[in-house]
Design a protein around this nucleic acid. Structure first.
Lengths: 205, 205, 205, 205
DNA sequence: GATGAATGAGTCTTCATTCAT
DNA sequence: GATGAATGAAGACTCATTCAT
């Protein structure tokens, strides 16, 4: 158990440095001096630098996946919108608590290794697919308007990612308000509802 | 003028390679062998590798900025929604025509140099600010509902970025339809309009 | 005595690995994992890796030295050729029984440490000197023809070493026949005896 | 051509150092400081340290192979014994002129890489096979006595190798005399010819 | 005695950049 | 202007050995 603790210690330090400097500008020397271990000790716990980085990446993907739960229907279940809200809130809270991990995912993970790129892309694709399924379900149930749910799903995903990027740089004062704002945007867009019929007809063709 | 042509040639080759392999995995050797110039010649045209990369990055940011025009009001001007649509269409067409450049911006540019990161971030912030100003204007004019326009702006920006990422990987069959879908999503969200009032009251608090 | 047994155990395992992989490609990790002892335990029994290797080397040199006995003259002693034959047989049998040790000596011992190189070289030199003395004696006694006994000694030594290298790679079907063949070669060479006088005069000048 | 010269320069220096210190104790640092080139320059000419070493090894094997020519029969050809003598003389002269290369082959090449080991072994096997073929031919022609030519071939090979090892350590005063001595040993062994018949009957069974 | 986590000196290799021709 | 050989700083990784428990 001691061993795991040491490993975790190194991971924690590395996370911090990777988040600030990115993969390439981070040396093994940086990590070991921060973690106060010898060079060889590093390789006792991790196969190599990339291995450690991947582990952090897997960690953030795993943690996020846990927090994104599919919308469930049923008499016992909360309203779909409420489940959505809960998902968003969980993700946002995680991001706020683990800004370094988030930063690694958002800023430093893409484009340095084809394998990892694929893994990240596949994660996002799975999230998008989950959103899309929810939207399809919503259409069936009459909550959601007819639309290209794939495109909508990616719009939603992108919006959330962008907001996450923002709050990982600067913590928002009120996370709940933010979540509400996102929800409202996703559900009703920015147009004044009163004008939507007109818009539909006139502007949106 | 010969010099400029040669320079452009190198830029074109480099763009391709950077797009595929990213900044770090691209060697100067890769570039010069593709461009069929000698090592020393490379440094005749570009200060260094980073300089070349920055130039490509500036190029894509410049091209995008040109295509994103602020919403103008006036008797001569098209409807705001139409201006929006035009912006989106221009951006999407550029992305499709310059997938490599787009890839560089979206996938390979972040996290390898603080300067560049800042420049990219600032570009996005300016775009977001522009969107936000448009939304504020829309509220004033009564088109847009009351909302946190900053959050909405980042949601919109994120959605568009995500879609761009998608189409830079896989070209969509119909760019106009896609633009419409995005517009509709941004304006009216995914909820059925008929339910919005109920939603407003019940679910969205 | 427990300690000696343990030590011998480690030596046995190390012998095997050194024989197969050579000194440099053999890690302490290889040895301890094979011997099922802890890293620290290794250094309880041996000063270091080189020390262990040296011990194996000394062992093989010692064992060989024991088996190579000088030719003794006297009414009680067997014929010189018989003593020669016995020496060869003992060496060959040892080699067959201790192929790993032989391999270490022949293939992996030379060229990694000046000290050891010198020790091995000196061993061979001593063997060569012994052979030379026997030849000189043989000349005195009229068994051996006039020749440069030093050169002849090294030829004999080399021939035997080469054969040893062969049989350590692939066991021969009949060790006695092999010994006879070597003896015959050393005593009478490859030329047909009937031609030797002619040869001496004509070809060998 | 300049490039080849530089390469050869590095090879020459490396040869010297490898011969003295062996592969493992020789650093790239040793080589480049001796050759007065920069670290990167080394890798301009050689893929890596092993590559350079292999090249030297191939070189010595090639040079030796050239000097060992098969015994040819025919009215135009010199006597077989003369051809033998010429082979030996060529090899010995090469060894004397290229002691470092010889040293590399004899002392430092075995046991550090399975591939190279196999290549060297295969070289020796080919030489042995060539000797054996000559002996078989000699038997057919009546020059060579009936014997196990394979064993005899390895004895001859081993003898020559051992002598080579000696002269690479200490140059002999008279190379021709040495060659004669080896030839005589190989042809007629060490026993006094007058006794051979007796020996055949009495001692050699 | 036994353990195995920790150490850090030692090496190889890469690659952006320079500069003499 | 063009070339490409040369440079050397920088960085990853190995592994024999030690030592606190």
């Amino acid at each position: 158990m001691e061993k795991q603790a040491r490993r975790a210690q190194v991971l924690r330090h590395a996370k911090r440095i990777f988040a600030r400097k990115g993969y390439h500008r981070t040396n093994v020397a940086d990590i070991i001096s921060r973690a106060r271990i010898a060079r060889g000790t590093f390789y006792l716990y991790f196969e190599n630098k990339k291995d450690l980085f991947e582990e952090l990446l897997e960690q953030v993907l795993r943690e996020l996946a846990i927090r994104i739960q599919r919308i469930r229907l049923g008499p016992q279940e909360p309203e779909p919108a409420e489940q959505l809200r809960a998902n968003l809130r969980r993700v946002m809270c995680f991001v706020l608590n683990e800004r370094d991990l988030t930063n690694i995912l958002l800023s430093h993970a893409l484009g340095f290794d084809p394998d990892l790129d694929a893994r990240i892309q596949s994660f996002y694709d799975r999230v998008a697919a989950q959103i899309q399924r929810s939207l399809d379900l919503g259409i069936t149930m009459g909550f959601v308007r007819q639309c290209d749910t794939r495109t909508a799903a990616y719009c939603i995903l992108g919006g959330v990612k962008e907001i996450i990027g923002q709050i990982s740089r600067e913590a928002p004062p009120d996370i709940d308000a933010l979540v509400e704002e996102i929800l409202r945007f996703g559900l009703s867009g920015v147009a004044r509802p009163e004008l939507l019929q007109t818009l539909s007809a006139a502007v949106l063709g």
